[in-house]
Nucleic acid binder design. Structure first.
Length: 350
DNA sequence: TAAACGTGGGG
DNA sequence: TCCCCAAGTTT
């Protein structure tokens, strides 16, 4: 074990040197504060840097301070978050902002236990904020660190105990003079060179210090958990427009998948056009013109939606709720309904 | 502890 | 087209 810590200690200096020359220029690195580090880390959870960039910029323009976020409207926040996924992150972000604003007078606590008590902040994010924003020598063990540390040490045990073990090692290894740079260097190395499938070992500054590279075991380290099956779901989605331009939308339940976001009316199963016509009648609507139909698949982490879509011009109000273009602009509709969104955009452009 | 929780990009 | 993800946290 001690040997693994020594292997990791050996990478600190060459990694920092590499980082100083190769670090990515990122908006949350240009100007560092606990608030900005926190927001960026939440957005980056399970999300690529390129996807985060535009969201981060818009977010900071709209909510420059934690007080602005605390005072903000949740519906507007979700609209800003629309398309970024894992929407509970946005809700937790605001819950935490309100706690920081009220209980901490707007100043993030530089304390692991207090940070981790905030909604949405777990072990990794607390470590990232403490090291990057507060300069404290704390590890921030994410997927990159797991991958790099297990390869450096040649750790090929199953994934169960890996994170705890590597966190223990990294606690000893994080340099107290540049903890934030060290943690971010690991992220950049993991993103640029120490890739999951095809690591670019010949270009790596840690070549010669890496057990996996020496043994040629990069491909099987870290050991990955077996992938799980996705539950198939079939649904029929209705893009319904009235002659006055109003479109039917519904709000999803407050819990579960895409909680609280808006969606087009939909029912379980793949309906034929005749069945869809009966569904419209059941809602109390009269079809005036069947505009178009489509098929779409949307893959979530654990569910696969197979969708049949119908775009119909209808009359009546029925049991549904109708919204004008102005009202729709303020509602967050997830990417799962992209096809319908696109058709609607086309209509709005006409 | 394992499952739930999104999305867009790359191979 | 399909599979694999990417700076995890919550329950």
């Amino acid at each position: 074990m001690e040997q693994n810590i020594e292997k990791l200690q050996a990478i600190v200096s060459p990694l920092l040197t590499w980082y100083d020359e190769n670090r990515r220029v990122l908006p949350w690195r240009e100007e560092v504060s606990a608030y900005r580090t926190w927001v960026s880390e939440i957005m980056l959870q399970q999300t690529r840097v390129a996807a985060v960039l535009p969201y981060f910029q818009r977010f900071m323009a709209r909510y420059p301070t934690v007080q602005d976020l605390a005072r903000g409207d949740e519906e507007e926040l979700l609209k800003l978050w629309e398309g970024l996924g894992y929407y509970s992150r946005a809700r937790n972000l605001q819950k935490a902002a309100r706690i920081v604003a009220e209980d901490y007078a707007g100043a993030f606590p530089a304390d692991y236990k207090e940070l981790i008590a905030l909604p949405g902040i777990g072990d990794y994010t607390a470590g990232a904020i403490l090291s990057i924003a507060f300069g404290l020598p704390v590890p921030a063990v994410d997927g990159n660190v797991l991958r790099i540390a297990s390869r450096i040490t040649g750790w090929d045990r199953d994934v169960q105990s890996t994170k705890k073990e590597i966190t223990r090692w990294m606690t000893e290894v994080v340099p107290s003079d540049r903890p934030g740079a060290f943690n971010q260097a690991l992220m950049d190395l993991g993103s640029a060179l120490c890739l999951p499938a095809a690591p670019r070992c010949p270009d790596c500054p840690l070549r010669g210090l890496c057990t996996a590279e020496r043994e040629g075991s990069q491909a099987r380290i870290p050991v990955r958990a077996p992938k799980k099956d996705k539950r198939p779901e079939e649904k029929t989605v209705f893009l319904l427009r009235r002659p006055d331009g109003a479109v039917a939308l519904g709000q999803r339940p407050k819990t579960g998948l895409l909680a609280g976001l808006w969606e087009y009316p939909n029912v379980p199963g793949l309906l034929t056009e005749a069945q869809a016509a009966r569904q419209l009648a059941a809602w109390g609507l009269t079809p005036l013109h069947w505009e178009e139909s489509w098929q779409a698949v949307h893959i979530f982490t654990h569910v696969r939606w197979q969708m049949q879509g119908y775009a119909v011009l209808v009359s009546g109000e029925g049991d549904l709720s109708w919204y004008s273009e102005e009202q729709r602009r303020q509602k967050a509709i997830p990417s799962a309904f992209e096809k319908a969104n696109r058709i609607l955009q086309k209509w709005e452009g006409e």
